[in-house]
Design a binder for these strands. Structure first.
Lengths: 134, 134
DNA sequence: TTGCGTGCAAAGGTTTTGCATGGCA
DNA sequence: TGCCATGCAAAACCTTTGCACGCAA
């Protein structure tokens, strides 16, 4: 599913970085800076276009979380399976926590089964106060 | 809590429109157009600043749904008491569902006990696709 | 060779900011 | 009078698009 289109140096180094990202959230800017630091010359436009393509192919997940900030992308490691995960955002310090939890994973199912509503984890964020700020 | 700052014509007409919005989600652009149609001259900047202020005061809730598109705001009718239940917002039709459910009420407790995070139901919204749009 | 990929620059849209003016208290 | 509020224009921001050139197959 990643074999569409040509194989170019740019796509190789971008995908390499994403694969080594440990499924962290990365922004376009981070990718750009990493490649720049590594001495790889890749244009911003190329990153935008390729990341969009990878998102469509299911290789990445795209999140819109911060207000002014741009989108975040997460590499989906197919070996790990598609683990859904939830986001908790602290209203005080702004920190974003990524939570994988079986209990929380059942929420989506419950809402679907009992309320007929299909939750999109990409867009859903729990707001509140984190441990450190309390 | 709405009594901070001066009372001006602009703030009055903006708040008036919001109160009559039936807690629908409205964009900055909608407010601007409505006021323009009503013959009220209010600058776009003023709307941005005042809506931001109202959001901080808890009078409005701010949503980020579409990528390229701007933010949406919802008037919080305190008489309705939207504090003890959850909200599901449909990404297609924009409808906001208010759900009271014991199961969902346990979520907050779980997140607090297991993840040390205190969820604010006022600000948390589940995004997804509703029954009718599916 | 063919056509997709790249990247610069420019455009697109939303939101913020600087600054002088206006208006509430 | 003393501040806050307003609003225009410009800037800041993220993202997309146009177009010519490069390069994989």
């Amino acid at each position: 599913m990643e074999n569409k289109g040509y194989r170019t140096r740019q796509r190789e180094v971008i995908l390499e970085f994403l694969k080594n990202s440990n499924s962290r959230h990365v922004s376009i800017e981070e990718v750009l800076e990493h490649l720049k630091a590594a001495g790889e010359k890749v244009g911003r436009t190329t990153i935008y276009r390729y990341m969009e393509k990878l998102t469509e192919e299911g290789v990445l997940r795209k999140y819109f979380i911060e207000e002014g900030a741009g989108a975040c992308y997460q590499y989906v490691d197919s070996a790990q399976g598609c683990h859904e995960h939830f986001h908790l955002k602290c209203l005080k310090c702004g920190k974003l926590l990524h939570v994988e939890c079986d209990y929380l994973n059942q929420i989506g199912k419950h809402i679907k089964d009992y309320h007929g509503f299909e939750v999109d984890n990409t867009k859903t964020v729990f707001y509140g106060i984190c441990k450190d700020c309390k």
